[in-house]
Write a protein that binds this DNA or RNA. Structure first.
Length: 889
RNA sequence: GCCCGGGUGGUGGAAUGGUAGACACGGGGGACUUAAAAUCCCUUGCGAAAGCGUGCGGGUUCGAAUCCCGCCCUGGGCACCA
């Protein structure tokens, strides 16, 4: 027999289950460590090898921290609402709940075979009514709150002071006053409506559907929104102090997109039969200093003023442009515009530039977005590239108002700062001062004001789908929207077998007759929540997953928060993390959690890439060959050819996906090599943060290493049926040499786990195993025992097996992590590298603590050094203690 | 276009101003075996050598894969954001 990983892994997984080895409970006596994975969506395809990369990393940290004496919370659950289950239901007639349960079972089975030290008693499933009851409860906290700008925080809506003139108008007016200020509110928002599928598409889905030939139109729809923009400032400032990758911090900041500037009013000129006379166009600008150079204006096609100000001659062409814009998705419009195709039409209206007093034409164009700023801009073609391109295309005037342009202003916009020119009272001022001066001037005259704008938009929070959390809201006959009382939560999903929205876009739940109507004539809200809802707070539920009276207890939250380490893919760098932070802040304001931020340290693992074989020169999705149709020209070659045609094939490393056919299933790897090998290889591929290709040959190397470890303890026989025998290992840690090797390994592995440098931690253990065998001295018992502890976070099954073979009765999961004896980390001598002119010429052993003079003298006397010096006199000698000597001649 | 990462042997990678290529894969050679697999050992950046080598060109430094400037290539994110 040899290393029988199947039996070993099954045995220890059973042991951990039976002994509840990884059960975690609140224990104020011990320091806590909360290490969290981004929980998966349990798809029908099952795990691919990309999932366990992050999970293995967190598991190593969890096991390591546990052995360091921390009370570790390491949970897992399922982000199980979502579109795929609903689509599957439409196609195969299987209810999403049934399908989801199947997928979860499969995912859980796969995760269990990897031996992760999750506390499975804390498993959560976002589609479980006992879970989404509290998702609904949190929604009601948000809906039941408003943002008090004076205190800079959310407060219960009941604390909102109602002005006397509002209360005088009666209950309906008070209700409206409150509803307009809630953190969740109804709003007509433009969405991507796909008539063919009868669903609202996410921006990222639009391209795909258009490719499939489905028409997608922008269309306003009544939606629930969340007022995340009120938190914009705090979402930026609280990033300070988080241990997150700088790139993610940047992405969040850019997404929120704070910019300082001014809001300026341009009155509409009442001439030529323009109906909009008397109205004004509000614009936001970050460059109020260039106001004298504003030669035209542009409104977004959806801007409410467009219809009002449009002249009769222009009405037809304007209406056509607006209609065309509505037919195209936001992404499509922006993509075309980015390629330099500037389109737009003149409305026939003119506005008055408040600085120059001059008349400027008002246009509409795609390149102005309704969702940002005020949906209107003052165009300064001299100093903004987009405006410049538009002005050139439409033959609009360009005026230079900032000096210092490198090229004539007619040719290119000058966007840098400079000194104001052609700008009356601003002339000669530098850009920053000119901005301030202009804002002051506008404010004095009531023509504008200082303003901060964010790119961040309010969060569209409702979906016209079945497989999501129902909103716990009722529409009363009088039009009032009221909350379902807390004691009636959860509002469960009604059974339904038709998941299609109606022609008009009414959500599927509107078809749930008998569920939707209440005896008093109220109707339930029929939208459902987006998938984000469940994932916005799952890390909170993990702290106290079976609490029936509250989403989590105060005691649990005070003990476990914040999450100390959160690992997941970079694709969640913005949306998920931003939404979860937002909810957390609302809960913080309302006193439910005690930390401002949920996730203290964040690490993004890289992608695991799969080899994809394409016909030469035609790399692209749907073009690739399946793996069994290709082979290398010769064993070990990286030149691949098609088996039948013998044509050369191009190998690319792509993100694993079913459509590319490059997915590697962990089940296959585990059945061939075992979970410990799989875990080891996942970590050995390279740095956690980097994407890395999955190379099946590489797995064998990790397997060989574990076999060597196994044979350190066991004598194996090739003969069938001869059981492995535990070697007789002498007691203690052995010779000085063995002890040095052991302690050096302890030191290296510990320090590298601390840095999440798992690939090099593993190589340190490989070196240990190689050298310990080569020594010729038998391995000693205590040396092996301590090595088992080092190995256990990485390959826990084998480590447990050896640990018990050494006579231990309990799991090593709660053993104390070995401590390196500092004295053994230093050798009596160190190798000194001698360089001449920066080139390595010799290496000699120098006793530890030798004086600089002695070292120099010894080095200079060395024959190799003498030879390379070739009679020249050293001009300078640089000594780096303990390392290196560089001789300059 | 903008932002953020990368670029080191045949391959994944190591080295965070001090010996470039740890560890592993793959290759070559050998031992064991009737044979193969498995296992073990040797070898493996290029070059006959002097030397040359971390995408390219410069710079700083006694010393640069590492720091600075310019360029090229590549991955990811965002995109007419006023």
């Amino acid at each position: 027999m040899t290393y029988d990983f199947r039996a070993i892994e099954a045995r220890w997984q059973r042991f951990w289950d039976e002994h509840q080895t990884f059960r975690a409970e609140v224990d104020p006596e011990r320091p806590k460590y909360y290490v969290l994975d981004m929980f998966p969506y349990p798809s029908g395809d099952g795990l691919h090898v990309g999932h366990p990369e992050g999970y293995t990393a967190t598991d190593i940290v969890a096991r390591y921290k546990r052995m360091r004496g921390f009370n570790v919370l390491h949970p897992m659950g399922w982000d199980a609402f979502g579109l795929p289950a609903e689509r599957y239901a439409m196609k195969h007639g299987v209810h999403p709940a049934v399908r989801t349960a199947e997928c979860i079972r499969n995912f859980k089975r796969q995760l269990k075979t990897l031996g992760f030290s999750y506390d499975w008693a804390r498993e959560v499933d976002t589609t479980d009514p006992n879970y989404y009851k509290w998702t609904q409860w949190i929604f009601l906290q948000i809906w039941g709150a408003w943002y008090d700008p004076e205190q800079g925080k959310a407060r219960p809506i009941g604390e909102l002071e109602i002005p006397a003139e509002v209360s005088a108008k009666g209950a309906a007016a008070v209700r409206r006053y409150r509803d307009e200020r809630r953190l969740a509110y109804l709003h007509d928002a433009p969405v991507n409506w796909c008539p063919a599928l009868r669903v609202v598409l996410a921006n990222e889905e639009v391209a795909e559907q258009v490719e499939l030939g489905h028409e997608v139109v922008r269309r306003p729809m009544r939606q629930w929104m969340m007022r995340i923009t009120t938190y914009a400032e705090r979402l930026i400032t609280d990033l300070e102090g988080l241990e997150w990758p700088a790139s993610v911090l940047d992405m969040q900041k850019h997404w929120i997109g704070r910019s300082e500037g001014a809001e300026v009013e341009f009155p509409i000129e009442g001439a030529d039969g323009i109906k909009g006379a008397g109205a004004a166009i509000n614009v936001f600008t970050t460059r109020p200093d260039t106001l004298f150079g504003a030669t035209y204006m542009v409104l977004a096609p959806e801007h409410p003023l467009v219809a009002r100000i449009c002249s009769d001659q222009q009405r037809t062409v304007v209406q056509a442009y607006v209609d065309a814009a509505a037919r195209r998705s936001e992404r499509e419009r922006q993509a075309e515009a980015a390629e330099g195709q500037k389109t737009g039409v003149f409305t026939g209206a003119y506005a008055k530039n408040p600085a120059t007093g001059g008349r400027v034409p008002v246009w509409i164009s795609d390149y102005v977005l309704m969702g940002y700023g005020t949906g209107a801009i003052m165009a300064v073609p001299g100093h903004d590239e987009r405006d410049h391109a538009f002005a050139q295309a439409m033959d609009l005037p360009i005026v230079e108002v900032v000096s210092g342009a490198a090229r004539p202003i007619a040719e290119a916009a000058h966007t840098e700062a400079g000194l104001a020119i052609n700008s009356d009272f601003l002339d000669g001022l530098a850009t920053p001062q000119a901005k301030q001066r202009m804002i002051d001037w506008l404010e004095e005259r009531g023509l504008g004001r200082r303003r901060v704008t964010y790119k961040l938009r309010d969060w569209l929070f409702s979906r016209q789908r079945y497989w999501g959390e129902p909103f716990p809201l009722l529409h009363r006959p009088d039009g009032a929207v009221v909350a379902v009382p807390e004691d009636q939560l959860p509002v469960t999903l009604p059974p339904l077998d038709d998941f299609q929205p109606s022609e008009s876009g009414e959500p599927p739940l509107s078809k749930a007759v008998g569920w939707r109507e209440l005896p008093d004539g109220s109707l339930r809200e029929t939208n459902t929540m987006p998938q984000w809802a469940g994932s916005c707070w799952y890390y909170l539920r993990f702290m106290d997953p079976s609490n029936a009276a509250a989403p989590f207890s105060k005691a649990a939250a005070d003990y476990w928060l914040p999450v100390d380490l959160y690992i997941g893919g970079a694709e969640h760098a913005v949306l998920h993390l931003l939404y979860a932070r937002f909810w957390h802040k609302v809960l913080f304001d309302l006193g439910h959690v005690g930390t401002r931020e949920p996730f203290q340290r964040l690490v993004n693992q890289g992608m695991v890439l799969g080899a994809t074989y394409y016909p030469r020169g035609r790399a692209g999705i749907q073009q690739n060959f399946p793996l069994d149709e290709v082979e290398p020209v010769a064993p070990g070659s990286d030149q691949w050819i098609h088996k039948l045609t013998r044509e050369p094939v191009e190998v690319k490393w792509d993100k694993m996906s079913k459509s590319r056919g490059n997915v590697v299933n962990p089940d296959d790897v585990i059945s061939q090599y075992g979970a410990d090998t799989m875990r080891l290889y996942e970590m050995f591929m390279g740095p956690l943060e980097h994407s890395a290709p999955w190379q099946t040959e590489g797995v064998a190397g990790c397997h060989r290493f574990l076999q060597r470890v196994y044979r350190l303890a066991f004598e194996t026989s090739d003969d069938e049926g001869v059981p492995d025998r535990l070697r007789e290992l002498p007691a203690g840690e052995g010779s000085d040499r063995q002890r040095r090797l052991l302690h050096r390994t302890i030191h290296a592995v510990s320090e590298r786990i601390d840095r999440l440098a798992f690939n090099t931690a593993i190589s340190a253990m490989m070196v240990f195993v190689r050298d310990i065998v080569a020594e010729g001295e038998p391995l000693h018992r205590d040396t092996l025992a301590q090595f088992c502890l080092l190995l256990s976070p990485f390959a826990p099954h084998l480590a447990e097996e050896l640990w018990s073979a050494l006579g231990q009765r309990t799991s090593l999961a709660h053993e104390l992590w070995p401590a390196a004896d500092e004295a053994l980390l230093v050798d009596p001598t160190f190798p000194l590298v001698v360089q001449i002119q920066g080139k390595r010429r010799a290496e000699l052993a120098i006793p530890q603590g030798a004086s600089e003079e002695d070292v120099k003298a010894t080095a200079l006397a060395h024959p190799d050094v003498q030879r390379h010096l070739d009679g020249k006199t050293p001009r300078r000698v640089i000594y780096v203690p303990g390392k290196l000597l560089n001789i300059v001649v």
